[in-house]
């Protein structure tokens, strides 16, 4: 098992490097938001989602559309997306844009507008109950999406419908376009208690520790839908990007790129 986590660490390192490489070919990219999601996405694809006949049987929805680079690089490694697809990211002949589009390989829904993923996730999970197909659904939301009323509407419905097959991860990096959430919206907190009061089982973990994420999933105690609050750092891995709102949508210049790569490969 230990070996599996070492492999995961390597993958996450290379994912960040790949994103930085791509950032040198396009003007702007949501790199920092992707960096906070890397370990969560790795945990979902490599440890939690069941496969059947070499294909994913369970479903993963990237509700946090602007974090899609984390998903794209994972899908590339899984050979679901081609190298060419990522090389052509945000170019006129490419299929991949700044937000995931339904219909592209490995992409289960179009996201990018915040607050849509939870509704889709509830609809899919409930359908899986109706169809009795034993599939599980994993959805990754940004913490900003918990400022959208639609997310809470659907959380209430997920619990009403007893969707025990639904697991949600919050990329809780606490940082949004306008600043640090605990200062801009202090009453966003307490978060875990709010979620529990909506009928969910909820745990809080270090979102950059894959084994903690998996452990939180495996130690689920109830038949309620499960929410794992993954505490993360926006821009994780690159010192000058970490928790700096300016890096929400920006590509590093050549100098910055060199430093960033050095820092990432060192860790």
């Amino acid at each position: 098992m230990q070996n599996k986590f070492l492999l995961s660490k390597d993958r996450c390192k290379l994912s960040r490097k790949r994103i930085l490489d791509i950032s040198q070919q396009v003007k702007a990219i949501h790199a920092a938001g992707a960096f906070s999601s890397i370990e969560i996405v790795d945990a979902i694809y490599y440890f939690l989602m069941k496969k059947k006949k070499n294909k994913f049987f369970d479903t993963f929805l990237m509700s946090k559309g602007h974090g899609c680079m984390a998903q794209y690089v994972a899908l590339e490694k899984l050979k679901i997306l081609k190298k060419k697809d990522l090389d052509q990211y945000c170019t006129k002949n490419g299929i991949l844009g700044c937000h995931p589009d339904y219909g592209n390989p490995g992409i289960e829904a179009s996201t990018g507008s915040l607050g849509h993923g939870m509704g889709l996730a509830v609809g899919i999970s409930h359908s899986d109950v109706i169809l009795n197909n034993k599939k599980k659904l994993f959805v990754l939301l940004s913490d900003g999406e918990f400022q959208e009323g639609s997310t809470w509407e659907n959380m209430m419905m997920a619990a009403n419908l007893n969707l025990k097959n639904l697991t949600c991860f919050i990329d809780h990096n606490g940082s949004q376009s306008f600043g640090i959430t605990k200062y801009t919206h202090p009453n966003f907190y307490p978060l875990v208690e709010k979620i529990k009061s909506f009928g969910w089982e909820c745990k809080s973990v270090n979102g950059h520790n894959v084994s903690s994420i998996i452990n939180a999933y495996k130690t689920k105690k109830t038949n309620k839908p499960l929410m794992i609050v993954c505490n993360t750092i926006k821009g994780k891995g690159v010192s000058f990007m970490e928790n700096k709102p300016i890096w929400h949508y920006r590509s590093p210049n050549k100098e910055e790129y060199k430093i960033a790569i050095k820092e990432i490969l060192k860790k």
């Binding site: 829904a109 509830v122 609809g123 899919i124 359908s127 209430m156």
Partner: peptide, 23 residues
């Protein structure tokens, strides 16, 4: 199971229906 009342939550009504259509 095929009847859902989301309550006074119309965004939820559409989102859930979209998820069901995806399946």
């Amino acid at each position: 199971k095929r009847f859902i009342n989301t309550g006074v939550a119309e965004q939820s009504m559409i989102g859930i229906a979209a998820g069901m259509a995806l399946r």
